[in-house]
Design a protein around this nucleic acid. Sequence first.
DNA 1: AACCAACGGTTCAAATAATAAACCGACTGT
DNA 2: ACAGTCGGTTTATTATTTGAACCGTTGGTT
Lengths: 268, 268
Amino acid sequence: MSTVLKALHLLDLFTRSQPQIGLSDLARLAGVNKATCFRLMADLCAAGLAEQVDASKEYRLGPALLRLAALREANVPLRDAALPDLQALARQTGETAHLSLLVGTDLRPLAHAYSSAHASKITMEDVRVFPFHATSSGLAVLTFQPPTFREAVFARPMPALTAQTQTDPAMLRQRLGQIERQGFAESHGTFEADVTSFAVPLFDALGRCTGALSTAAVASRVGPAQSRLIRTALITTARRIIALWGGCLPPTLDTIWTASETLAQEPT
Amino acid sequence: MSTVLKALHLLDLFTRSQPQIGLSDLARLAGVNKATCFRLMADLCAAGLAEQVDASKEYRLGPALLRLAALREANVPLRDAALPDLQALARQTGETAHLSLLVGTDLRPLAHAYSSAHASKITMEDVRVFPFHATSSGLAVLTFQPPTFREAVFARPMPALTAQTQTDPAMLRQRLGQIERQGFAESHGTFEADVTSFAVPLFDALGRCTGALSTAAVASRVGPAQSRLIRTALITTARRIIALWGGCLPPTLDTIWTASETLAQEPT
DNA sequence: AACCAACGGTTCAAATAATAAACCGACTGT
DNA sequence: ACAGTCGGTTTATTATTTGAACCGTTGGTT
């Protein structure tokens, strides 16, 4: 393995729960010799990617990361970075794909992509806010918010947009639990009649859910096979976008997603 | 030179004006062999610190930086990172040191440190906002803001806090020009009577001025020698804090500061 | 169309830098 | 006073890095 990769691997050992690590621990964690670890960390420190705490001699992530990350964000805004994957999702599924972002207390569309597979498209160009209670994206995001946020949303008015819209907080809480277990959200005509939609949550660098990825399709088109295809495509695309954003997928959700991915590969 | 440093040096070649660089250019810029450059970039890409643009094969900074930077910021908030340097500044100068941050349209105190050298201290514990027109910090920050921001500030009410306070926009514009040339701001009793204060601007990762570092002293204590000492200490500390924050000092200001630093080292 | 230069990427012997065990002084708790 | 750990250093040995030359491709020029 190259020396550079060994050094950069050391950076990944720093986590939120263990933000500062001593030399010996670091060497143990990385499975490298202590002397090697020392030299690698010295290099990382020289480049500013790591630094040593004054008092204890422990290491932690360095200030240069801030500069480089700001540069990256300036050059490749989140939207642009995700757009190709979003378009690929629309192509693969043949359905309209949406990318939404949590802005303050609202879930707002960030980008969308259409497929050319079908003449009938679901357009949501003029939607400015995705209602949490009536869209699959909203439910997906809501599921991974802290309870205070969830209850604040339930306390706001939740209009019944269609005959199918669920507006009872108790029922919705139950839905969220279901979504958490299965790793994705779905909605059947709760936002617009005859529109079936699936969504998965997206996570930022600190593991917070800050958006959702979804597809919307004419209900009649979504049979069991198409439903399965959409869900697996959503998961793999979500994985890519989260990685692209430097995000961090919660381990529990990761295992759920992995399970449904492997399930999809098995013969029907 | 270690391979790791060579690799990490490559990251510093990406700038705002040149965010994507091809392999050959990169090798030329870094002064390394093309094959070497290729391997190093492959490693950086594997670690996510860099990535290749799909269409052109150019390289750019990668998504992992976002994750790592968020982690760094979560573990070492700006305030904590700068505090030791701020305290050192207070110790070196024997005066009160202030660190202020631009929050929205206001300049707010972020931290302060006192010296034990003198019995009479300048305390500004209860100041919630630094007026731009009446404090050295305010003027320092204002100098490096876009014209629209400056004029918006001048359009707001600018109360005369002391007999010395300058409130005429035309005069203030002239002051800003002077500050830009000399690389630091000063105020003599414009915020509080008999308080002389010096300030230098601070810059974030994108080169925007987002705060200031300042000292405040009883006017009678600040003779020519003390004034010179304070200014050089401010500059060196500001350099450290900007580096710690992953900030980016504008080149023009850098040369001005370097000039005054070397000047200070010469015999009187 | 033929040419040329420059591109990203690959190869392989030669050169160099990385490695790991042992060691050091300092500190800590027993 | 001891044993154990820490961060850091040294050393010969070893494995990785290096760079000139070489692909196949691309894009512009003659």
